[in-house]
Simulated scan of single mutants.
Amino acid sequence: MPSREQFHSEMEELNQDIIRIANKTKKALSNSIDALFNQDIELAKQVVSDDKLIDKEEASINDKTILLIAKQQPVATDLRRLIITLRVATDIERMGDNAKNIAKSTIRLGKDYQEEIPKELRTMSNTALVMLETALSAFQQEDISFAQKLAEMDDKVDKLYKQVVTNMLGKTAINSEEVQYLMQIAFSARYIERFADHITNIGESILFLVKGEIVDLND
């Protein structure tokens, strides 16, 4: 196979690796939120365990990308595309870490807390999952019109995050269990907000790939 065709074949393999790890991260967030709302400690533990697989896949993507750079010595857009692959893989891995941290909050809360989980967390999570699907479409098609939609959705997540934190600060905790509840809910909201921020980072990477411009979608 000619060198150019080999490059495109290996690049497509990397793209599929990105989609696969992103889908695992999507499942991690969905499961971590389900575990939180259902007090499902076993599911939360599974999310924590599965995060190791996401870490391994990110390391594999990094190794493949660096090897491809060394073999092909790409320039211009090809080099930029590989650098973006590294950046996107890193953001996805950190999204997995945020999902894992939500699961850890669920484990810390245990099965006996009586307080209701704020419904805003579910809305935040659902919005983040739509953002991830949008970002993956942008990545696959290198379409900046998808990437530019992410900022508006991220604003929605940010507003809900502030609402949750404000509500938590307005509550009075009179014992250690209530303090733990307020802390873990606030942390979980923050983890979802950070999950969404990493998705906007992916959008920024796509904008840079296509237009060669640095754009801050988190601004």
Rank of each mutant, 00 (worst) to 15 (best):
E12C: 04
N15F: 07
D17G: 12
R20K: 10
R20G: 03
A22K: 00
K26V: 05
A28F: 04
L29G: 03
N31I: 03
Q39A: 14
E42D: 11
V48W: 05
D51T: 10
D55P: 04
E57P: 01
Q73R: 14
P74N: 05
P74Y: 13
P74L: 12
L82E: 01
I83L: 14
I83S: 10
T85L: 07
T85M: 11
A89Y: 04
T90V: 05
I92T: 00
D97P: 14
K100L: 09
K100F: 04
A103M: 08
K104T: 09
S105K: 06
G110V: 06
G110Y: 07
E116A: 13
I117G: 01
E120K: 04
E120W: 01
R122K: 14
S125P: 08
S125G: 13
S125C: 12
M131W: 09
A138C: 04
Q141W: 01
E142M: 04
I144W: 11
L150M: 04
A151G: 02
D154V: 06
K156I: 08
Y161R: 10
Y161I: 02
Q163R: 00
T172R: 03
S176G: 01
E177V: 08
E178R: 15
V179S: 02
Q180H: 02
A189E: 02
I192H: 00
I192C: 04
R194W: 13
N201G: 15
I202F: 12
S205A: 11
L209G: 07
V210K: 12
V210P: 04
D216T: 13
